[in-house]
Design a protein around this nucleic acid. Sequence first.
DNA 1: TCTGGGGTCCTAGGACCC
DNA 2: TCTGGGGTCCTAGGACCC
Length: 420
Amino acid sequence: MYALADCNNFYASCERVFEPHLEGKPVVVLSNNDGCIIARSQESKMIGFKMGEPIFKCKGLVKKHSVIVRSSNFALYGDMSRRVMQTIRLFSPDVEIYSIDEAFIKLDGLAGRNYEKIMRKMRMAILQWTGIPVSIGIGKTKTLAKLANHYAKKIPEVGGVAEIPQNSDEMLRAVEIEDVWGIGRRWSKKLRNIGVNTAFDLAAIEPESIRRSFNIIAMKTAMELRGHTFFRLEQTPEKRKTLLRSRSFGKPVESWHELSEAIASHATRAAEKLRNEELVAKVLRVFFHTSLFNYQEPRHSAHATVELIPPTNVTHTIIKAALGAAKPVWKCGFRYKRAGVQLIDLSSGQTQNSLFESQETKARDKRMMVILDSVNASMGSGTLHFAATGFTKVMQMKQTRRSPRYTTHWDELPKCLCGL
DNA sequence: TCTGGGGTCCTAGGACCC
DNA sequence: TCTGGGGTCCTAGGACCC
């Protein structure tokens, strides 16, 4: 048996923990650069805000309903997530952290075996200790736990915890095909065309025909709805295979100078992450493009790929490769909106030495990265940086309504909790 | 004026090997 | 006139997830 614990409206709930007066009011949280809506409180959902909608299109509704609009505060959300996960681990040793706001829990063998009761206890503990409300679904497979979770969120009467009993056709019939985990928009449309409208319908189709029309994952999903386990708990995450750092610009960027600083910054952040996970990259891809939505201006999308020989995680090597690859594909006269650096073909450190590489340089670079990382860890990220990343604020995000980073920055600690 | 930032897996088709 | 049968690797594109 599996449970899925999923935080309700996670980012919006995090905003409320330290500002209880937001309780009961419509709250939305915006993406980077204050672009799109990426989280909505229940009240905001009722008003009709859609996930991913650009905020500038919602001005009327925001004003009409006095909606609280917040910039994203990932320092806060990340830390709150850690607290929620820690609490979950107190209830079961077998936990898979699936995303910033979700965790799968293997229930088999938990004392008492009254799983629903244990999960209700856990739910209360999370609410009391972190202030975050969660919904919990229980089922025989991960897909069924997801489904039960959906049910728990939709039906308030169950009190945040729902279990799918064996042979529960009813619950499967109550879930639309779009809401099945692993079945997205495209496949839903295709499935509806052949008369498959609910989770129950999908479970009823002959599996091999699903594999033929879709793929093996869709088939496994359908089998999981029948209670056959295909997706197991993954407690030790595999090493990642790719790493991407990219941002939209607050203001469009035209000059090579500004663009190069942005690319160097992305390269820096990507290299830091790489070292943090003890990986090296074999291939680097750099890209930048003009606005995807502006058809009035000239459009351009550029990208270039280079091999890193030997594979590396050294910041200056990666900056040099990124800028070297980007320069030839940059074109003057375009207003670029986004740039990024992607590291591909990652592997853990043990690489073959290059015939042409000086061992002295290699050792020096390694020492340099150790110093760089330790200075930036103790004195703040970016304290020591390469000149290529610049000294201006090109990379500054538009973030006009960010709440304090209450739990991770000394000078932003809450001084009093309004309303308490 | 203004539209995020990450990931994973699968499949088909082409190039190559014997 | 007639042209086999078995592999692997790589890539692009398309699907999905949060």
